[in-house]
């Protein structure tokens, strides 16, 4: 089976050909398997957003290749255009891309660009709206009359309606309050469970990533600094902090306790798990 996305020896420069040329991505190799849920973390300017902009050909690599579904996307115009629909990219603060007169029309922008029949477009819009929890009566409203959270969901629906094989979210929960964050992460989880598609979430919130991802890729300074399961990656919390990431409080606590010589794992990332470990420990101590 081919990978959903594969990147080979990818290098990209900012301001290429000028004296200010800086390497943003340095010879990166990466394969994302179909059906997986991958988290990409890295601080602002680490190159993570530049990296994902290569997944659907928004940026052209200076060197190296990008394969979507086993096909080199820069082979021809058709493969490039195809990659836009195979890989759905949902940028940070996607609500700022809304432009149509109604929410319905806005969500159908993507499917329409795919030259689908009106019936098919309609079907997809309704499906995506339902998925993102937009009520039917909202679809006839102007997107600018929605609340902040609703706008965000409408914009996400616009990408989901294209039914891409891979869905990439850049900071999907940015600017949301705790309950909004949780809801949105849940929404992405549900979507993935239902459609089985590949999902990539880019974030600097290690907390959100820990909650959903099966595999974590750490990008630092244009390179992949770590790649593994959540357990593996989060056990290096000190190094992650040095890269400017905010390690969740719970992980910090356990990594400190671990370093102090207590018999606890250093890579705990959920409060419930942490409490369980400690309760077990003191339960055992009492016995």
């Amino acid at each position: 089976m081919s990978n959903a996305i594969e990147v080979k020896n990818l290098t990209y420069y900012y301001s290429e050909g000028t004296p200010n040329q800086v390497a943003a991505i340095k010879n990166v190799n990466l394969a994302i398997e179909k059906g997986t849920m991958v988290g990409i973390i890295g601080h602002t300017g680490s190159g993570k957003s530049t990296l994902i902009s290569h997944f659907n050909g928004l940026l052209k690599p200076a060197e190296g290749n990008v394969f979507v579904d086993g096909e080199d996307i820069w082979q021809s115009k058709e493969t490039l255009r195809g990659s836009r629909f195979k890989v759905g990219l949902c940028f940070q603060y996607p609500e700022y891309q809304l432009f149509e007169e109604t929410v319905f029309a806005d969500i159908s922008f993507g499917p329409k660009n795919m030259k689908l029949s009106p019936e098919e477009v309609r079907e997809r819009v309704l499906e995506a709206a339902e998925f993102t929890g937009l009520r039917k009566e909202m679809l006839d409203k102007s997107p600018f009359d929605l609340s902040g959270g609703e706008k965000r969901r409408a914009a996400i629906a616009g990408v989901m309606a294209m039914k891409p094989q891979t869905l990439v979210f850049d900071e999907p929960a940015a600017g949301l309050d705790p309950s909004g964050r949780k809801e949105l992460i849940k929404l992405i989880q549900n979507y993935r469970e239902k459609t089985g598609c590949t999902v990539v979430i880019v974030s600097h919130s290690m907390e959100d990533i820990a909650r959903v991802a099966e595999r974590v890729i750490v990008v630092n300074d244009g390179e992949i600094a770590a790649d593994g399961t959540v357990d593996e990656v989060y056990s290096h919390s000190d190094e992650l902090r040095k890269m400017g990431l905010n390690v969740p409080e719970i992980t910090q606590i356990f990594s400190k306790l671990h370093d102090m010589g207590y018999d606890v794992p250093g890579n705990v990332y959920s409060v419930e798990k942490g409490a369980e470990i400690i309760l077990n420990l003191i339960g055992r101590g009492c016995r």
Partner: peptide, 13 residues
């Protein structure tokens, strides 16, 4: 730049 990328990602030609 940002808006253009977002719309291109939705297949805008």
């Amino acid at each position: 730049d940002r808006i253009m990328n977002a719309q291109k990602a939705r297949g805008a030609d």
